[in-house]
Amino acid sequence: MRKILGQWVINLKPGILWFFCWSPDFNPHSKVHTHAQIWVRLMHLPQEYWRKQKLFEIVYGVGTLMIIDDATKSRLFGIYARILVDVDMSGKLFDFILVERE
């Protein structure tokens, strides 16, 4: 139990499994889910930012990177990069992401 709870979260690709310690008065119907997995589209992104590490850095402020779309990985489509992100919906949500470069 300590080993499992020490991990807190496991990436199941394409999902996340969160671990919490149960309390004696736990009621699953009263648990409010605040996390959701959403697809983020990065429009008009220069090709040099389509690498996995750069995409991770861009979406880090939004949530936890889950999956990069196959077309984005292989750079086949080219109009936008698409990334699946786990977002805490109880926090601040963003309408857009501004990517600046030197």
Results as ranks from 00 to 15, higher is better:
residue 42 L to K: 01
residue 46 P to Q: 13
residue 68 I to E: 03
residue 16 I to K: 08
residue 1 M to V: 07
residue 91 G to L: 09
residue 34 T to A: 10
residue 67 I to G: 00
residue 16 I to S: 07
residue 37 Q to C: 10
residue 11 N to S: 04
residue 28 P to M: 09
residue 69 D to R: 05
residue 85 V to P: 00
residue 63 G to C: 05
residue 74 S to I: 14
residue 46 P to Y: 07
residue 77 F to M: 13
residue 65 L to I: 04
residue 35 H to E: 14
residue 70 D to W: 05
residue 16 I to V: 15
residue 6 G to L: 12
residue 27 N to S: 06
residue 48 E to K: 02
residue 34 T to Q: 03
residue 86 D to Y: 00
residue 3 K to E: 07
residue 37 Q to L: 15
residue 82 R to P: 00
residue 47 Q to L: 13
residue 41 R to P: 01
residue 96 F to P: 03
residue 100 E to V: 02
residue 61 G to V: 05
residue 68 I to W: 02
residue 50 W to N: 09
residue 95 D to R: 08
residue 31 K to I: 15
residue 80 Y to L: 07
residue 57 E to T: 14
residue 13 K to E: 12
residue 97 I to P: 00
residue 78 G to H: 08
residue 84 L to I: 00
residue 90 S to R: 06
residue 38 I to F: 01
residue 15 G to V: 15
residue 18 W to C: 12
residue 95 D to M: 14
residue 78 G to K: 11
residue 81 A to Q: 02
residue 27 N to R: 02
residue 73 K to M: 14
residue 72 T to Q: 01
residue 72 T to K: 02
residue 89 M to D: 04
residue 2 R to C: 12
residue 60 Y to R: 11
residue 91 G to I: 04
residue 22 W to R: 11
residue 70 D to G: 08
residue 39 W to Q: 01
residue 26 F to L: 08
residue 40 V to R: 00
residue 55 L to N: 00
residue 95 D to S: 08
residue 34 T to G: 01
residue 4 I to M: 02
residue 96 F to S: 04
residue 36 A to P: 02
residue 79 I to Q: 14
residue 30 S to C: 02
residue 14 P to S: 14
residue 6 G to R: 09
residue 12 L to N: 14
residue 42 L to H: 02
residue 14 P to L: 05
residue 2 R to F: 06
residue 82 R to S: 09
residue 28 P to H: 03
residue 56 F to Q: 12
residue 85 V to L: 09
residue 72 T to S: 09
residue 12 L to E: 12
residue 92 K to I: 09
residue 56 F to E: 11
residue 39 W to N: 06
residue 51 R to D: 03
